Computed example of a mutant assay.
Amino acid sequence: MRILKTHVLLRFVNSYIVDSPQPANISYLWNFGSLLALCLGIQIVTGAFLAMHYQPNVDLAFNSVEHIMRDVNNGWIVRYTHANVASFFFIFVYSHVARGLYYGSYKSPRVLVWSIGVIILILMIAIAFLGYVLPYGQMSLWGATVITNLLSAIPVFGQDIVELIWGGFSVSNATLNRFFSLHYLLPFLLAALAIAHMIALHTEGSNNPNGVTSNGDRYAMHPYFIFKDLVTFFAFFLVLSIIVFYYPNLLGHSDNYIPADPMVTPASIVPEWYLLPFYAILRSIPNKLLGVVAMFGSLVIFLILPLVDVSRIRGNQFRPAMKLAFWFFVVDFFILMWIGSQHPNSPYVEIGQIATAFYFSWFLVIIPVIGIIENSLFDLTLSEGAILTDEAENNK
């Protein structure tokens, strides 16, 4: 039985990592998937070590994090690695999504791969938010208070749901215990979804920059693409090492080094940088319920891409109008990120509202309109080509 299990495991590794055929023309932009798998592994390992010393108690949480940093051997390395790899996780996932958008990786037959990926992104954001609360600094407490309070906008049951999450009438011990349990357990669900994502990808194979079938021009994963992945692995470890050892708080918020105080409200309550675009969308809509719907909708809307992109051309390599629209979307995303970090005053509110309107219009209007126009031009070109062919035949 043991030999059979080993044989099955070796076949799995060989099929997915060694002999898996990959398009010959994929670039380093396809390395983000392996980098995300590496980040997930680092987060699970470092998180397990942090959990050995962390105390999910409102009176002890902040001090337990300081204990990890000061008293545990190399604890500061583990903690800073865990915190900074979370940021790299989102840098890589946003780059991975952008690559998928640019090259049309969401189109059939990879709809399932894309859908699982969107679910992974939503779960990642939830796990990151839970983890941000655990150090129980000022921004942790007030971030948790503001974000969980958003659910009170749900008609009838909203306040009951908030109190259920809190385990009381405010963020308290019960809240911290629940957040810690979920933050520890959900990454394993994330790992299961990542495996499902990989299995679905293995079924149809990777997309490629040209967006056309390349079954006749493929190389084995090992050694060609394994060594390509190692290049980005070493580059990632180099940058991560520089940040952890020299600039560990570069991507964090200074207010989280102040112990949580429910009697003192910070001047500006903001989430981590990677959640700022969605926070900006939330604040750009005056109505609380519509703001919450828009914030969650800004993530779920990625699921409709296979339906709204009706163009027969896959990817933006040969679509100049869609290529321009893509870069407008990227700029809009960064504008939302910047607006999310600012105080909700004029003119930032108005800029956020314009950027939010463009964000949703890109999915619901711009993509389908460009697709319809491209299909019409494509049909017109085919018709003209057929007419010219007929005329040439008649002249003969």
Rank of each mutant, 00 (worst) to 15 (best):
T148L: 05
S152V: 02
E163F: 10
W142C: 01
I161E: 08
I199E: 05
R178M: 09
Y184E: 09
F180I: 05
H222V: 02
A191K: 14
L185A: 15
A192I: 13
N173G: 14
I199P: 06
I161V: 12
I165G: 04
L123T: 14
H202A: 09
Y132D: 04
E163S: 10
T148E: 08
D217W: 14
L141P: 03
F179C: 03
Q138A: 05
G158Q: 06
F129T: 05
S140T: 12
L134M: 07
T148N: 07
N177R: 14
I127T: 11
A196F: 13
A174I: 03
L201N: 03
Q138H: 08
I120D: 00
Y136R: 03
D160G: 05
Y219W: 08
V133C: 07
S214D: 12
A220Q: 11
G137N: 08
F180H: 13
N210M: 01
N173V: 10
I199M: 09
D217H: 14
T148M: 05
P187E: 00
F188K: 10
F129Q: 06
L130I: 08
L164Y: 15
I122G: 01
P135N: 15
S214R: 01
E204R: 06
T203H: 11
L193G: 10
S170I: 03
A194F: 06
A128T: 12
S152C: 03
N210C: 00
I165W: 10
V212P: 00
F188E: 07
H197Y: 05
D217L: 12
